[in-house]
């Protein structure tokens, strides 16, 4: 294969500029998909994939270091562990306050909103946990696969 930079114009201004313009809107849309998950198409998994894809887009258009400036490795690990903790924590709280595991209406004794409101709100809490876990695990998979596990340089 020929030298990859023989014809290249160096840093690609078009791709970098459009990625820099688009990434905030992609992340906003990811949050929208997570928040609207219980009464429109979408949900935690889909919104998490969109959020993770925005960081992967940064890593593709710039490099791995730039995406790690916006989402440091420690923050990624923290969010990836916080997601399952939120999920299991909400479920276990329901069991502690007298319902079944993930039976959100049991949380009515904690904050009295009404059982129907709590079923809707509890799904939202669980979706946030799912979204955080999916986002950070997807980003971590990309970092590991593209840099051979070193997490420093890649595509």
């Amino acid at each position: 294969m020929r030298d990859i930079h023989e014809h290249s114009a160096g840093e690609d201004l078009v791709i970098k500029t459009s990625v820099r313009l688009l990434v905030p809107f992609i992340q906003l849309f990811g949050l929208y998909v997570i928040v609207h998950g219980h009464y429109s198409p979408g949900g935690g998994f889909q919104g998490g994939v969109i959020l993770g894809a925005s960081f992967i887009l940064l890593a593709l258009a710039y490099d791995l270091k730039t995406s790690q400036d916006y989402m440091p490795i420690w923050a990624n690990a923290l969010l990836g562990n916080l997601g399952p903790v939120i999920y299991i924590g909400v479920g276990a709280l329901c069991a502690i306050f007298g319902g079944l595991f993930l039976d959100y209406s049991a949380l009515d004794v904690l904050i009295p909103l009404g059982p129907v409101e709590w079923r809707s709100f509890g799904i939202f809490l669980v979706e946030v946990g799912v979204g955080l876990a999916v986002m950070s695990i997807m980003l971590l998979l990309y970092w590991n696969l593209s840099s051979g596990g070193a997490l420093d340089e890649g595509l």
Binding site: R2, I4, S8, L21, L22
Partner: peptide, 22 residues
């Protein structure tokens, strides 16, 4: 608006990849 920004960018990226690969 999203399509109007992303579609030319994707075309540009594919064209440049083809040019670089000769």
């Amino acid at each position: 608006g999203f399509v109007f920004v992303t579609s030319p960018t994707a075309t540009h990226a594919i064209t440049e990849a083809a040019l670089v690969l000769g």
